[in-house]
């Protein structure tokens, strides 16, 4: 009996190491994530043998998020349309609504919204799944069986998310533009035809990369990066989980928080790089 109480008293002390300055902690955890990403990318050659797991990840994350993307994308398009429409109407420029909705969906809103939804639904689930595996010794079990956990656990999630994110972004862009059209028609007296003509005109093909419009592929590249980042952060948090159910909660929280920050910061730098450089 004496031993049992002693263990419980000791455990928290053993799991919380002395605190480092915040900046060091930050740099260390970013470094860890980048290392995890690079080590997983080195296993990209395993992709064919992991195709079943990758497909499963894509399917699951697609199914989990599709309805949310549809709903949120639709409303975001409606908001953008209404907000800018009211201002444009004052200047007598409401025929430009289509252009503005299409460009802001494709460049910013589509990938941003999709990334946020993926973080909340799939990123949190990944951190919790891997975290639970960690605290129930399953990761140790993989290690003693000489099973490569980056190849088995991280690679499918990384590739799966990096592939599903642009697909969902396309869906989000499309419903957003459609949502904008409803509002334009119903509340701003801009006909479908005019709206769609200006929207399609805005996303002009550039002759580059499958002849996709620049704004569209810029958004899709962002989506791929967001997908990869969300998976990396979530896997990293999950894999290093310690401390039972509490630890799983901590990891999930950290994964969601840091992915959202990551999406916003990366978004700025990618926009800068793609449109100013």
């Amino acid at each position: 009996m004496a031993e049992a109480t002693e263990i419980r008293a000791e455990e928290p002390a053993a799991t919380s190491p002395p605190r480092d300055p915040a900046i060091l902690t930050f740099l260390r955890s970013e470094g860890e994530r980048i290392e995890l990403l690079l080590r997983t990318l080195r296993r990209l050659g395993h992709t064919p043998s992991r195709s079943k797991l990758i497909y499963e990840q894509m399917f699951l994350s697609g199914i989990q998020t599709l309805h949310v993307v549809l709903l949120v994308g639709l409303f975001i398009g409606m908001i953008v349309s209404l907000q800018t429409g009211i201002e444009l109407a004052k200047l007598g420029q409401q025929d430009q609504i289509g252009t503005i909705v299409a460009i802001s969906m494709a460049r910013e809103m589509g990938p941003f919204i999709t990334g946020t939804i993926l973080t909340a639904t799939v990123g949190s689930a990944i951190a919790a799944e891997l975290g639970t595996m960690s605290v129930s010794n399953e990761l140790d079990a993989l290690e003693v069986m000489s099973v490569d956990r980056l190849s088995l656990l991280v690679l499918p999630r990384l590739v799966g998310l990096a592939l599903i994110a642009p697909l969902l972004t396309l869906v989000c862009d499309t419903v957003g533009i459609i949502g904008g059209a409803f509002v334009a028609q119903a509340q701003l007296n801009v006909g479908y035809e005019m709206y769609m003509t200006s929207a399609i005109d805005a996303l002009r093909p550039t002759g580059f990369l499958f002849n996709l419009p620049k704004d569209l592929y810029a958004g899709l590249i962002k989506a791929v990066v967001f997908g990869g980042m969300i998976a990396t952060v979530a896997c990293n948090e999950g894999l290093k989980t310690t401390g039972g159910a509490l630890g799983v909660g901590r990891s999930t929280r950290a994964a969601v928080r840091d992915s959202i920050i990551g999406i916003i910061v990366l978004n700025y730098f990618m926009t800068w790089f793609m449109y100013q450089a």
Partner: peptide, 29 residues
């Protein structure tokens, strides 16, 4: 480690694999 076996105190089965696939995992990998 491929020459060693380890029986965990709590089993430590991979929770998303069936019993058979758990046992088959070292061979598959």
């Amino acid at each position: 480690r491929k020459r060693m076996g380890y029986v965990f105190q709590e089993g430590a089965l991979i929770n998303w694999l069936s019993v058979g696939e758990n046992v088959a995992l070292p061979l598959r990998e």
